[in-house]
Structures are given as C-alpha cells and as structure tokens.
Design a protein around this nucleic acid. Structure first.
Lengths: 197, 197
DNA sequence: TATGGACGATACGGTACCGTCCCATCGAGA
DNA sequence: TCTCGATGGGACGGTACCGTATCGTCCATA
C-alpha cells in the first residue's frame, strides 16, 4: 500500500517546473487566460505535454497554481516617518507594480476572468489583494498613531482612494505615468484624508 | 455595373439584426470576448450562421460593430446647482452604469482585450470613454465658473478621482455598493478638490 | 550497477470553431 | 403575379485544442 519514495532521476525536475512556470506566465501575458493553450505552453517551455500533465491534472489547475505562486518581488511599504512620505512611497511602489511588464499584462485578464471563475478569484484575492491591503492598512495605522489622521479614519475608503486612481489611469485607461501627476495625486490624497469636512 | 436596389423581402431584416445584436451582447457577458463563438451567437438568436455572415465579414468585425452601437440609456449628469450635488449625482449615475447587468459584465473583458486589440480599443474609447469624460468635465467647469473650484483645477486628476474609486471597488474588487460608502466618498472627493494644499 | 520514473516526442480520438457553400422556402414590393 | 435576395438549416474542409497513451532515452541514487 505505502509507496516507497522514488529514487534516482525519477523525480520531477525543478528546472523543468521552472521553465513551465515561466512559459505559462508568458503565454498568459501574451494570449490571455481564455486563450491559454497547453500545447503552446509546452512548446514555449521546450518541454513535452507529458511534463505538464505529470504536474497538474488540467489546464485550469495549472493556471491557478502558477498564478498563485506568482508573488513578484516583495512589495514593501517603507516607514518614512510622515504620512506624506509614506503615501508617496506607497504610490511609487504601486506604480512599479502596475507597470511591471508581466503583472500589468496579466492583471486585467484575471479581473475579467474572476467574474466567471470563483476558484480563480480565491487565488487572486488571497495572494495578490489581501497581503497588499494589510501592509497599506498598517501604514495608515502608523499615521493614526502619530496623530496625523483622525482615530475614526475610514480605512476601507482610504485604501480605495490610494489604489484606485493609479489602477484606473494605468490599467483601464492605459495612460502614461506622468511624474507631476503623482505629486498632484499625493496632494489630493492628503487633502481628502486629513482636512475636516 | 450599378446594382439596382433589391425589392420585396430580399432585404436585411431589422428584427433579425436586433436579435443577433442582443445575442452577441448576451454571449459577450456570459462567455467573454475571447470565447465568443459565431455558432453560439446564431443559436442564441435563433438564426442561421448565414444571417451573421450576410451582415459582417468576420467575428471580429461583428463584435466591434455590436460593441460600438451599444450605448445604453443616455448617461446624464444633471446640473443640481452645487458642486456637492453634482458630485453625488455623478457618482450615482456612474454606479448605475457600473452595476448595469450587461455593461458591468462586458466591461472588464473589453479592458483586458483592448491591450491586444488596438482596433477594439478605438471603438471602446470613442464610444464609451470620450463622451462620458466630456460631460463630467462640463460639470467641473460649472463649479469653476461658480467659484466653487479654483481656476487652475487639474481636470484630468479630478476626472480620475471621480471615476476610479467606484470602478476599483465595484469592478476590480467586486464589493457591494454600500450607501454610506457613497456619502463618505463624496465628502472625500470634495475635500481633495476644494481645500487648499 | 540496476532501477524506476521523469523526460521529449508524437499519435490519437474527440470536441469545438471558423468561414464557405448549398438548399428549399418565404414574402414585400415592382 | 413575379422576382430576387434574405431566411433557417446544416454539411463541409480545415484548424486548433484537450487530455490520454505509448514510445525509447536518460540518469541519480540505493
């Protein structure tokens, strides 16, 4: 009943897995989620289709697995000591994220596909949305502790105000990342958060 | 050389065209742009594939044509007399737009597809983005004329701040349209636009 | 040195489409 | 009444995939 562990070269090779992962991400960026093809992935990775099905049992499983593991360089939100500095740093980080050649091309497809694919939605939310929101929430909490923001600051709204404009501009409207725009956006954010109604 | 106009029943029937258009939009909402299929459209419209190819020469042409004509009920931005009133009304209108059962399901796909399909991008920009932005810009201009906003208000930024948060929340994060959220968003927008830096 | 499963390659049956073509039928206007 | 092209239906060749199966080869460890 108990299978002894395989020996010798008879074990999944990490370099092959890596090549496949890269190919999936490239194909995803190039063709989109709906047009992802096992044959194209295998060809691009220089690998037999067998290598794919030895690791995952279906296309959907492979795609979700690869996307889940795609974390990118850790996105940090530095503690600059002031809300303005933190805000600007967070915006810069977010912009780097949204202009990352791979991520920026894959993200819109995922957003569209998630509406039809709850399983994919889970993967995206858990590994892209959640950790990021937590870090930014911590940033706002620091500002509250410093007295720069009122105790009853609406964190949900603050998070949206921070992330939405850049996403809208870079991804939806695909406009260029004007540096002056970033300054104006930072100012506008500060005003909307700190001034009394 | 000159073909005389056809007579009798030998003319494209508007009711058939309408049925096809509806079917395309339904399929687009259900399956997405990449998975749109001529066979499915014909079946859904209760129509032969011939009827499709009699009107358009390819799938791409059909899709773009239908999307271009899909205008929705005219989106108006009422003149309430105050910036706050106009802002809130514009947000309500935008929300109605983004929760419209058909539009909200088609939009994310278009955003994703536009990155790979410049021709489609043109259609979307011309018939969805542009007219809407013009109307909102007029709204801001009224506020400037009334003295509620400074002369040098950054209209580009203002437009982004208005549209982005709702799009982000409703489409990208697919959260619920909390009514209190709308009030807080209105306040935040007012602060970011009107208070001095 | 023997082993056992991963490896690339490829054939396979099955399904889903695209775009073309042909058909018999229909019906509003000349 | 006659005309002529639109109509729904569907066969067709061609392509692209999915997921399975079957090769002979390779190789790190027991």
């Amino acid at each position: 009943m108990t299978r002894r562990t395989p020996t010798g070269a008879a074990v999944l090779q990490p370099t092959v897995t890596q090549a496949i992962t890269e190919a999936v991400l490239d194909e995803l960026a190039e063709q989109g989620y709906a047009r992802l093809s096992m044959e194209a992935v295998a060809k691009r990775a220089g690998v037999g289709k067998s290598a794919l099905y030895r690791r995952w049992s279906s296309k959907q499983e492979m795609a979700i697995s690869v996307i889940s593991e795609f974390s990118m360089e850790q996105v940090t939100v530095p503690d600059t000591g002031s809300l303005r500095g933190d805000l600007r740093a967070a915006l810069d980080t977010l912009m780097k994220w949204l202009t990352h050649p791979r991520f920026s091309r894959i993200m819109p497809d995922l957003v569209a596909e998630v509406a039809r694919n709850p399983e994919l939605g889970e993967a995206v939310e858990t590994l892209v949305g959640m950790p990021k929101r937590e870090r930014v929430a911590a940033m706002f909490q620091r500002a509250i502790d410093r007295g720069e923001l009122p105790q009853d600051t609406d964190l949900e709204l603050a998070l949206d105000l921070l992330a939405a404009p850049l996403y809208w501009r870079l991804v939806v409207r695909s406009a260029e990342p004007d540096p002056a725009y970033m300054d104006n956006l930072t100012d506008a954010l500060l005003r909307s958060l700190t001034n009394p109604s």
